[in-house]
Amino acid sequence: MNRRQKRWSILPLILLPLLVSLACGTSDSQTSEQETIQADVVFGPGAFVHPDTQAGLSDLTSYKASLTLSFDGTRDGKAQKWSRTYVLLNAKEPAARQLTIEKTGDISDPGVVFMAEVDRAAYEKRGENACTANVINQENSLIKRLEPAGFLNGVIGAEAAGGETVNAIAVDHYTFDERAFGQLDLAQSTGEMWVASNGGYIVKYLLTTKGNADYFGEGVAGTLTLDYELTGVNQPVALKLPGDCPAGMVNAPLAPNASNVVNVPSVLTYDTSTSLADVTAFYKKEIPALGWALTVEPTVTETTALMEFTQGNQTMTIVNTAGATGTKVHIVVGVQP
């Protein structure tokens, strides 16, 4: 919760995509030079400073974070009301995250957004569209960017309001207003936050900000409310993927001399100079060792081989096809309904 930590939290967001973009020849993120002025700013009268709203979360083994953002006001003179609710389930070991976003009211593309990241696979389902899977980009995780606590405003000068217990966690209660954001005369805010006495993470946060065009932009006036709560701290987390999501990453060894490897959720394909017979023998030996049961004897012809395995409610189908320079391997993992 000091200056150095805050900077580290911002830097990856800015620098990593930039470095990646430099490496790939494309640009993901750019930052301007800072424009600095000296100004008289009023901050809150209290003693509490908490600028990094995600502080302490990385030390938790698991949690459920819920945030409801709601707006009630006008845009260009017309009534506008919307809300977005973010619910994040986060487990550290093994790493798994699930985020749902529900939108209601006057908002573009309403509907439920589902995202999950499990065992190197990232899933996404928007509304009634099919669930798609991808490989997690560890450096640019979408869910990490949408961490609900990241939507909260840090405070300077909040006032202590005593100790309490919230969601079975001992917390310190603080109150603040727009001065805690240095926004006196810009908007009227009323806020409360409850910070874990041990760990320094935000357990609960309520903020109501009433503003006009100076705050929300031309033509917009109203009240924005943030209601954040952290529950299930260090409790087991159960993620549930939509039924049509592909299976996870294929955990199967590669036969010798593999090339052109494509390893994505539920599918592993590659080429190998190893012969069809040897590849088939390789998997007949290796896959059962990983806990899969061969359902029937492999079907082997001069040009193809087919093997089917099961493990729990999952199936693994391996198809080997002989080609001019070796063998093409397709491994597909599916989930039985």
């Binding site: 800015i14 800072q34 008289d40 003693a47 509490f48 980009n137 000068g157």
Partner: peptide
């Protein structure tokens, strides 16, 4: 205690910057 902030207006350095980013990762 070391953490009592100024309750009144104090001259402070304010800096503004702009960030532009996209989730698009591959070639456009």
């Amino acid at each position: 205690v070391g953490k009592t902030p100024p309750a009144q207006a104090a001259e402070t350095a304010l800096s503004f910057d702009m960030h532009a980013y996209t989730d698009h990762e591959g070639p456009i």
